[in-house]
Simulated assay, not measured.
Amino acid sequence: MLNVLFSAKPQAWDAYQAPLSDAFAKAGLAVALARDHAPAKTDYIVFAPNGPVRDFAPYVNTKAVLSLWAGVETVVDNPTLTQPLCRLVDPGLTRGMVEWVTGHVLRHHLGMDAHILGQDGIWRDEISPPLAAERPVTILGIGALGAACGQALAGLGFAVTGWSRSPKDVPGLRCLHGAAGLQEALRAAQIVVTLLPQTADTQNILDAQNLALLAPGACVINPGRGPLIDDAALLQALDSGQIAHATLDVFRREPLPADHPYWAHPQVTVTPHIAATTRPETAAKIIAENIRRGEAGLPFLNVVDRQLGY
């Protein structure tokens, strides 16, 4: 019998207990799932950063820490975490991100706000968007989420450039990498979507210099991580007209404080970190598969590289 500790906020237990138990049974695993296993007797930890476990040192026999979140920036530098850490790559989460990103890219591409918000008796027939092929879109970060979003947009006819820090090849996308590739990816882009992990290298990647590379009147869409954007630089670019609109789902501090300038800015849309949420039913299958692999002596899926931070 394996002891699996569930460490997340209390209300998550009700959502995850049944899907995890079902997934373990279907994977042929005999598991005692609980929120209070003794550390020395815990085989695996199902982990969320908002749960009670902060010190991993007592978990001397734990074989892996399995994250319920795609992002691991809040735990990857924890000095007590010596066990393998696996981030969540979940098809349900990916599909949610694809739908959110596609919806907001189409919203800006089609100029939908002018008609949705402008129900005032004025016939605005001068608003006619180009075809998707004439609208350059750049995706910063072409891991699992970025690649899926980029391919979905390419399937709609958009000219999509994907950028990553190391070389990648994603069918349907023009792929660039490195510092020089970043400038080329941003130059003249009309819509930019940020889906990079949060690391020291990606912090403020959209700063004043890089925002200036975008086409005048470009739109910024950030469902990745708040610190990817230099907030002061973005606000200045919005006020100058260099950036026409920013749709932001993630922020340096969450919930976004009520007095933050983003709330009142007419060219900013704030969404409350809902672009991609973990779905218990699909996430449970990923957790169960990783435990099955661990017990079978196979490599874990999606192990975090501590030096890279993801």
Rank of each mutant, 00 (worst) to 15 (best):
P197H: 11
P197Q: 11
Q198E: 15
Q198W: 14
Q198H: 15
T199F: 06
T199R: 05
A200N: 11
A200Y: 08
T202H: 10
N204A: 14
I205D: 14
D207W: 05
D207R: 00
D207M: 02
A208V: 03
A208H: 06
Q209Y: 06
Q209A: 15
A212G: 13
L213I: 05
L213H: 04
L214N: 09
L214M: 13
L214Y: 11
A215L: 08
P216S: 03
G217H: 05
C219L: 01
V220I: 10
I221K: 01
R225V: 02
R225D: 03
L228P: 03
I229R: 11
I229A: 12
D230Q: 02
D230H: 04
A232T: 14
A232W: 13
A233K: 00
A233M: 01
L234Y: 12
Q236E: 14
Q236S: 14
Q236W: 07
A237H: 11
L238K: 08
L238E: 11
L238T: 14
D239C: 04
D239A: 09
D239R: 05
D239E: 15
G241C: 09
G241Y: 10
Q242P: 10
I243L: 10
H245Y: 10
T247E: 08
L248D: 09
F251I: 09
R252A: 14
E254Y: 05
A258T: 12
H260E: 11
Y262P: 03
W263C: 06
A264C: 06
A264R: 12
A264S: 15
H265W: 03
Q267C: 00
Q267G: 00
Q267T: 02
T271C: 02
